[in-house]
Design a protein around this nucleic acid. Structure first.
Lengths: 203, 203
DNA sequence: ATATGTAATTAACACTGTTAATATAACTAT
DNA sequence: ATAGTTATATTAACAGTGTTAATTACATAT
């Protein structure tokens, strides 16, 4: 292994180390408790060192988002592989996304708060290799499967997919930011809502 | 008019002046462009003076939320007064909320970002005289009207109301924070989504 | 005129993200 | 081994943020 590769590897490892520490801060102190300086202190380096591994804070947050979504992407594919009925698959995937958001509030906040600019326009988003894109397209494929199986009314797939994304997003963010409003009954409301919307799109 | 009343009146007037300036900053510079120091400069006072009229930044933001929601509350009652069919009333109210959010992005962000603590627990929220409460209960009454008219399946009213709130919230926030994602087709998606969910809850 | 209470200000604290300039360490070529 | 080069880490600083304690200016009441 050449020296250049060794350096690159070491750099990649350090990047990982920073990322792990950053995630720990998020889990431990929440989104508001995170700062570049705090992260620097945790990894025992000066704050400016981080900037040798990440362009800026947004870049760091984006990397964390990607990790988070990569985990969910795996779960999504697992659901698809074990569930035969397309509508049930979609329902499970749907509820899983909601559960994932509610169980990882701080990571979800990172995704939500991270500037939309990092994903670029819709075209750039579609052509990107981001995990957000992968998750979106997996959902879209699930919707397409429902239409193809004749279970859904024939509509624009993107509209339906986005409607589902919107619904889960609304539920998660409202629960995270107005926790008392649903009186801890998020799961009941979630099921009711998922039922209603799937019924609404079914034939 | 006594001196004390005069002082109270003057204080109330100044409070209003601060509030108006704050709203102007939000409209002009957006949520991220707002700061207490900028507001102070605009009203030609030192930053600390604001703290004689508002407990802190959150308190100020809350006041702006209330104003914003008061306007929407009026529109909601207008819709109710002119629309005879309960389901159509709900649909219009629903779409109106979404439109209101999309047309006033910065004010909507204020509502969303303002710490949930200002509304307290659900019980405190219900007993409060906040505009958020009024809007919520108006929506709930509309849902009840649909159930009473035998148009909706008999379910917990709160669950349905919250489901509607969640959906509009999701649509608005996703459009505001991932604008390119819906490719400016928010209105199409909104109508489709509202259609689907109302169909889902109808008999 | 003096005392009282309110309102506004200055200065400061403890933070934030980020950058330019500088020092240090590591590797390359002579 | 030494000199030159490059990558990495650090210090100091900038321009902000919300907020508070201490202090001054001012209008009112005695």
């Amino acid at each position: 292994m050449g020296v250049l590769e060794k350096r690159a590897k070491r750099k990649e490892e350090f990047r990982r180390e920073i990322l792990d520490s950053a995630r720990e801060i998020f889990i431990h102190d929440g989104y508001d408790g995170f700062s570049m300086r705090k992260l620097a202190e945790k990894i025992d380096y000066s704050p400016t060192t981080i900037y040798n591994y990440f362009k800026n804070k947004d870049d760091l947050l984006f990397a964390i988002c990607e990790e988070f979504l990569a985990n969910f992407f795996d779960e999504l594919n697992h659901i698809r592989s074990v569930s035969p009925d397309p509508v049930e698959t979609l329902r499970k995937a749907f509820l899983s996304l909601i559960e994932f958001g509610l169980k990882n509030p701080n990571q979800y906040k990172v995704i939500f708060f991270t500037k939309s600019s990092v994903y670029g326009t819709h075209e750039e988003f579609v052509q990107s290799e981001s995990m957000a894109r992968n998750v979106y397209f997996t959902f879209k494929e699930m919707v397409q499967a429902c239409i193809k199986a004749g279970r859904f009314r024939e509509m624009d797939e993107d509209v339906i997919t986005q409607a589902l994304a919107i619904t889960s997003h609304g539920l998660v963010t409202l629960t995270l930011y107005r926790p008392d409003h649903l009186k801890g009954k998020s799961d009941v409301t979630a099921r009711s809502l998922v039922d209603a919307i799937l019924r609404g799109y079914q034939k």
